[in-house]
Amino acid sequence: MGIKQQLGLGVGTAVLGLTLIGGGTFAYFSDSSETNNTFAAGTLSLDAEPTEVIDVDNLKPGDSMIRDFELQNNGSIDIDTVTLETDYTVIDAEGDNTEDFGDFIEVEFLYNADNLDEVIFETTLSELQDMEPEAISEHIFYPDLGDDGLPVDESHDLVVKFNFVSDVEENLNQFQGDALELEWTFVGTQADGEEI
């Protein structure tokens, strides 16, 4: 290494050292402020009351049963839409069924208990089980709930009429002693998010 290079390296080192020393001697005013922020998610809570809508024994063709129940929004977020999922199991007592018992249980969704002749939507349990939940919402819940949905701390009464149809050509004797266990699942969904 030549003398010029050694001299240049020495000068560079000296300048760097002075810069570090000089930089450490300046003081500036400073201040800080903290904020405490919280994001708390709301709750979506859809409840049905009573939880057992229907329980009947000794059913025969031609019987009709009207039941009412209440959907409640017990959460902290408005429910925009409600859909219904249907599932049932037939317990064939004799093992001789050639038809689906659900084809012969007709379901009528009614406006309210005072106007039992005003049917919102009519179908069978088997058709209801095969329907998309959105289609069911459109036919059953939208006419009643409309654009308002189910706001927080509000409830909505629903009336359902079940009919064991008798005006059919099929042999209904195959259903003697049978049982049908029905499970309805109501699903509430929130509206789209918004700027708060």
Rank of each mutant, 00 (worst) to 15 (best):
G2I: 05
G2L: 02
G2N: 11
G10Q: 06
G12P: 06
T13M: 15
T13D: 06
G17I: 12
I21N: 01
G22V: 05
G22W: 05
G23D: 04
S30Q: 06
S32Y: 01
T35E: 04
N37Y: 05
A40K: 15
A40H: 13
L44Y: 06
D47I: 11
A48M: 08
E49V: 12
D55V: 11
G62V: 07
Q72G: 06
N74P: 04
I77D: 03
I77V: 15
D80L: 09
T81C: 06
V82A: 03
T83Y: 10
E85V: 12
E85N: 14
D92Y: 00
T98S: 04
F101E: 05
F104Q: 03
I105N: 09
E106P: 04
V107W: 11
F109Q: 10
F109M: 11
F109I: 12
N112A: 13
N115R: 03
N115D: 15
E118P: 01
E122T: 13
T124P: 09
L128D: 01
L128Y: 08
L128S: 00
Q129K: 15
P133R: 13
S137G: 09
H139F: 14
H139N: 14
P143W: 00
L145P: 04
D147P: 03
G149T: 03
V152W: 07
E154I: 08
D157C: 00
V159P: 09
K161R: 15
F162V: 03
V168D: 04
E169L: 13
E170M: 07
F175N: 08
Q176K: 02
A179K: 15
Q190M: 09
